[in-house]
Each structure stands twice: as structure tokens, then as C-alpha cells.
Simulated scan of single mutants.
Amino acid sequence: MKDEREFFDVEAVPWRPDPTAAGITERVLSRESDGSVGTRIARWAAGTETSGVIRHDYFEEVLLLEGSLHDITLDRTFGAGYFASRQPGMPHGPYRTVDGCTMLEIRHHIDQPPVS
């Protein structure tokens, strides 16, 4: 379960460095009961690049709000308005952004092992 919050001004939530990825800052809007990020706005600085294919143990939905993100594996660039919905264990990335990007990420953990 995610924490319960009524409407609030997202601008009041400070940007902080993503503890797992250089070049990315985040505004955490909600957390899951275990304290992990539930929903966040992530801002990737221009020139940010991830390494390796990414897999995680939670459902993830991502909406690109601004800028563009290049999927190195697919050799495709996605811009504002593009959406992704990922099952646990789904491979994606690595990514790079030339001009930077901002995205809304919604995560949800489940009590089942990830799909392989």
C-alpha cells in the first residue's frame, strides 16, 4: 500500500539526488508501506546515461513530461507524451538523454517473485 495524501503542491517537495543514479534528481510524491518510492517525478540532467539493461521487482509506469530519452537497446528516442508500462522483471534500457528529460514514475511492489 502507498501512503495516503490529499492534494498538495508538488512544487513544495524539494528536488533531491536519486541515491542510485548520478545525474538524476527526484521529487518523491508518495512512498510504499516499506518506505520505498511509490510515485516520483524524476529529472534527468542533459548528458545522463545509464549502463546495462535494467530490471526491477516492481510494476512501473512512466510518462515522459518534458525532453527526450533515447533507448540504446532499441535505438529509439522518445519524447514528451510517451508512456511505458513495465511488469516486474521486464528488461529495459540502457538510456541516455542529450537534452535532459522529466518523467512521472509510478511504482507498485507485489508479493510475488518477479517475472523472468
Score class of each variant (00 low, 15 high):
Asp111Trp: 08
Thr97Ala: 00
Pro19His: 11
Val13Ser: 01
Thr102Tyr: 04
Glu11Asn: 15
Arg96Phe: 07
Glu4Ile: 13
Tyr95Ala: 05
Val37Glu: 06
Asp34Glu: 13
Thr102Trp: 03
Asp71Val: 09
Glu60Pro: 00
Ala21Asp: 02
Glu105Gly: 00
Glu61Trp: 10
Asp57Gly: 08
Arg55Leu: 02
Leu29Phe: 11
Gly93Ile: 00
Arg16Leu: 07
Tyr82Lys: 12
Phe59Glu: 02
Met90Lys: 09
Trp15Gly: 10
Thr39Asn: 11
Tyr95Lys: 04
Val53Glu: 13
Thr50Asn: 00
Arg31Met: 12
Pro94Phe: 05
Gly79Leu: 11
Thr39Tyr: 05
Ala46His: 07
Ala22Lys: 14
Val10Met: 09
Phe7Gly: 12
Asp99Lys: 03
Phe83Tyr: 15
Glu32Asp: 13
Ile110Asp: 10
Pro91Lys: 11
Ala22Asn: 13
Ile24Ala: 05
Tyr82Val: 10
Gly93Trp: 00
Val10Gly: 03
Ala84Asp: 02
Ala21Leu: 06
Arg31Tyr: 12
Pro17His: 06
Arg107His: 04
Ser68Lys: 04
Asp3His: 13
Ser36Asn: 12
Phe78Arg: 11
Met103Cys: 07
Arg76Gln: 15
Phe8His: 05
Val28Trp: 14
Pro14Phe: 07
Leu104Lys: 02
Pro114Tyr: 02
Asp99Gly: 08
Arg40Phe: 04
Val37Lys: 04
Leu63Ser: 04
Met1Tyr: 08
Asp111Asn: 13
Thr48Cys: 10
Glu11Arg: 15
Ser30Ile: 03
Pro94Thr: 01
Ser51Trp: 09
Asp57Met: 05
Thr50Ile: 02
Pro113Ala: 03
Val98Pro: 00
Gln112Ala: 15
Val10Ser: 06
Gln87Leu: 12
Arg40Tyr: 04
Val28Tyr: 13
Cys101Tyr: 01
Phe8Tyr: 06
Ala22Gln: 14
Phe7Ala: 14
Lys2Asn: 12
Ile106Arg: 06
Pro94Asn: 02
Phe8Arg: 04
Trp44Arg: 04
Cys101Met: 10
